[in-house]
């Protein structure tokens, strides 16, 4: 079975973003970029399925600028077999990404698609579900455990209040939650080997998908700043402040 994994190039999760002074967007100039943390978990899960003999090939796909090749190379160093970059410098919204991925799936025919549950830049949490709708596949979102048996996959999902397990008929789409696994680090020899693995570049035109805007970003602002607080010196003072000043207890 072929497994398809998607990875997104995003701002490194440790970077504190700044809003541009003209409020047009956040400032991404000279900011460290990295693979979205949930995508790392997706790559890890796919590689583990291959190591377990469940998956025969792991194909990794990214959509975005030329520079997203770096994230594909990282995924290849982690164990993916080959990469596909759908290159576009335009702003690709979730629905467009899902449409492009649906075309890639049509060409590749994977048994399982593993994606992150959300990207930490837009925080949308949409693409996996949209792709599932467009391909008519079932979806196992927010997965903390994935078990493949025959043509079914059992997915344990993190839901409000606990865990839920569903069984999906493959081909299926799984989106990863944080506790699915602990991603490995790429070793230097594997990083070197990854440079020779195949990486194919396509464009939205090649895939026959028009990039259409469904939303318009009007402005981006910093969130309201909290008033500076005070440090109390004792529990007694804290209780007094909460009772008499903040009046919350």
């Amino acid at each position: 079975m072929k497994v398809l994994v998607t990875v997104k190039r995003v701002i490194d999760y440790n970077v504190k973003v700044r809003v541009k002074s003209d409020n047009s967007d956040v400032d991404l100039n000279n900011v460290k970029m990295a693979m979205n943390p949930f995508c790392e978990i997706a790559v890890e899960e796919a590689v583990r399925l291959k190591e377990a003999g469940v998956a025969s090939e792991v194909v990794v796909v990214s959509l975005g600028p030329q520079a997203a090749q770096e994230q594909l190379r990282t995924a290849l160093a982690l164990g993916a077999d080959r990469g596909i970059l759908v290159q576009s410098d335009e702003n690709l919204e979730s629905l467009t990404v899902a449409k492009l991925l649906a075309k890639v799936i049509g060409e590749e025919q994977p048994g399982l698609v593993i994606m992150g549950k959300q990207a930490i830049d837009t925080d949308n949490n949409q693409t996996g579900q949209m792709l599932a709708a467009l391909t008519g596949m079932p979806q196992g979102t927010f997965a903390s455990e994935v078990k493949v048996s025959g043509d079914k996959v059992q997915v344990t999902r993190e839901v409000d209040g606990g865990l839920q397990t569903v069984e999906l008929t493959m081909p299926a789409i799984v989106t990863t939650d944080l506790r699915l696994n602990e991603p490995r680090y790429a070793s230097l020899p594997n990083i070197m080997k990854a440079k020779r693995k195949p990486l194919e570049t396509k464009t939205p035109e090649d895939l026959g998908v028009a990039v259409k805007a469904h939303t318009q970003l009007l402005k981006v602002e910093p969130p309201a700043q909290r008033q500076a607080g005070i440090k109390v010196t004792s529990v007694e003072e804290l209780v007094d402040k909460l009772k008499n000043e903040a009046k919350v207890i």
Binding site: V17, V19, H214, Q216, K219, V220, E221, P223
Partner: peptide, 14 residues
């Protein structure tokens, strides 16, 4: 909110 709540985006749906 976007970027873990570090920015607030105003978005118009088309």
């Amino acid at each position: 909110p976007i970027y873990a709540g570090n920015a607030i985006a105003t978005v118009k749906s088309l």
